[in-house]
């Protein structure tokens, strides 16, 4: 499954651990939430980056104390119809100011990229190669946004106000 990060297809430095996979010596790891929470201190001490895979039905508040220490948070879309992780993403970015990698995992298609970027994701485990390759093109599909989110894009309402004021200055 190709990983898109920073708009490009990149190699994934993280290895995903299951609940019971033995801990590798070094290297970057993505750890399931329950394993992470039960053993956070030890995990965070080892060499290599640590990320956490957070299920979409687990309260994000529980993750908050670790946000400064993890290198990545992977949120989960069990199917693309299940939109809970969009709320989790926005809360992480906008309420808890999480600045590390925010990865979308699960059933990820190109048709969700714009929503995901706007919700604060910056990395994507894309299901289909063709979708991963189309990332940049798809991400630019829209130039108008009606809602303010943490991605800081100017909203339509805002742009209208700017237009109004600049017109006001001109006349």
């Amino acid at each position: 499954m190709p990983l898109v990060n920073g708009g490009k297809i990149v190699d994934d430095s993280f290895v995903k651990l299951a609940v019971d996979t033995p801990l590798p010596e070094g290297g970057d790891i993505l750890v399931p939430a329950e394993r992470f929470v039960s053993d956070a201190d030890a995990l965070l001490k080892r060499a290599g980056k640590v990320g956490v895979i957070w299920p979409n039905n687990r309260d994000i508040d529980e993750l908050v104390p670790y946000l400064g220490k993890v290198a990545a948070v992977a949120l989960v879309f069990p199917t693309f119809r299940d939109g809970r992780a969009y709320s989790q993403a926005r809360l992480l970015r906008e309420r808890y100011n999480y600045r590390g990698e925010l990865r979308a995992t699960g059933q990820i298609l190109r048709d969700q990229f714009v929503f995901m970027l706007r919700a604060g994701f910056d990395s994507f485990e894309v299901k289909k190669q063709a979708d991963a390759e189309a990332f940049m093109q798809t991400a630019k599909r829209y130039s108008v946004f009606y809602q303010p989110t943490g991605d800081g894009r100017v909203t339509a309402l805002h742009r209208r106000m700017q237009l109004r004021h600049s017109e006001g200055v001109g006349t």
């Binding site: 119809r81 939109g83 969009y86 929503f115 946004f145």
Partner: peptide
């Protein structure tokens, strides 16, 4: 209407 159109958080309720 504008606010809820292509809402990035609430399009998969």
């Amino acid at each position: 209407r504008q606010h809820t159109t292509l809402h990035p958080e609430f399009s998969f309720l």
